[in-house]
């Protein structure tokens, strides 16, 4: 259970939710953001997408460039702080906003960062614990078995583990086939995977081995970074696995080609 979520009661319908798209969804997989909007609207939220948003600043921040991250953090805060809630379809970007912005900023900006942090949720946490989304009327199509990758920041910074599994169970009638060593990093790590590609490849191979061992046909996850990494390596090795963001699965969007798959 997410402590952060416990303090909130289920909100009335018509609450204003700002979607932070994340740069990876914006650039590489808009279907994740569209699915997020659909799910939030279905849960009764008024979704707004602030058009001035770009990236949360993790690339610079994680590489130790704090100076250039600070103005970006301020920009994100100013862009998002008007809404009742901010929802992010990524554990690591949500972690950046809730845990790292307050560490980076001082004075009034720190107060604003903390205020924003209190209202910011990762998508599955928000759907499972804040708005408590209900199962859709229509039956879910028969799916291959699904396994789930827990992104590290989501797991450790945001306490995300049960929420996506609960949603898959309640909304899609799917019981996740668990990965062995699901708490071990997939080797993405932002720019890490490009700076230390050989080590990263060893890590993603370990992850893929565990994924394939489940016999699942779909690997779902809540962080596009990890999913792009795993899907990219699976494609390179010709592994037969569909990699999808959890938002797409929950939305029953299976027509969009899986990550790295052709049309």
């Amino acid at each position: 259970m997410n402590e952060h979520a416990e303090q909130h009661v289920a909100p009335p319908r018509g609450i204003r939710v700002a979607l932070f798209v994340t740069c990876l969804a914006d650039l590489l997989r808009p279907s994740v953001a569209f699915a997020s909007i659909k799910l939030l609207e279905r849960a009764g939220c008024d979704v707004i997408v602030p058009l001035q948003q770009t990236c949360c600043g993790q690339p610079a921040y994680n590489n130790g460039n704090y100076e250039d991250t600070i103005p970006l953090a301020k920009q994100v805060i100013a862009t998002l702080e008007g809404a009742d809630y901010v929802v992010v379809p990524s554990g690591s970007c949500a972690g950046m906003i809730t845990h790292h912005y307050p560490k980076l900023l001082e004075g009034q900006w720190r107060d604003r960062a903390l205020q924003l942090a209190a209202n910011t949720f990762e998508l599955t946490v928000f759907l499972a614990e804040i708005v408590r989304i209900k199962a859709p009327g229509k039956a879910f199509p028969k799916l291959p078995a699904v396994t789930y990758h827990d992104g590290c920041a989501g797991l450790r910074e945001m306490g995300i583990r049960e929420q996506p599994r609960q949603l898959l169970r309640e909304l899609c009638g799917i019981e996740v086939k668990e990965l062995n060593h699901s708490d071990v990093c997939c080797g993405f790590g932002g720019t890490f995977c490009a700076k230390m590609p050989e080590i990263s490849a060893k890590m993603v191979d370990d992850k893929l081995k565990n994924v394939m061992a489940t016999g699942a046909g779909i690997l779902a996850g809540g962080d596009l970074g990890c999913l792009l990494n795993i899907a990219g390596r699976a494609r390179r090795h010709g592994e037969d696995i569909e990699v999808r963001h959890i938002a797409e699965l929950l939305c029953q969007d299976l027509d969009t080609p899986a990550i790295g798959q052709g049309t």
Partner: peptide, 28 residues
């Protein structure tokens, strides 16, 4: 194909894994 085996300026990524192709435009 759905992904790139090689991509200019992205050899750090494509050295070890394919780069999944983006969808038809940015979300924005």
């Amino acid at each position: 194909r759905g992904s790139f085996k090689r991509l200019p300026l992205a050899s750090g990524w494509t050295g070890q894994r394919d780069f999944p192709a983006p969808q038809k435009g940015t979300f924005m």
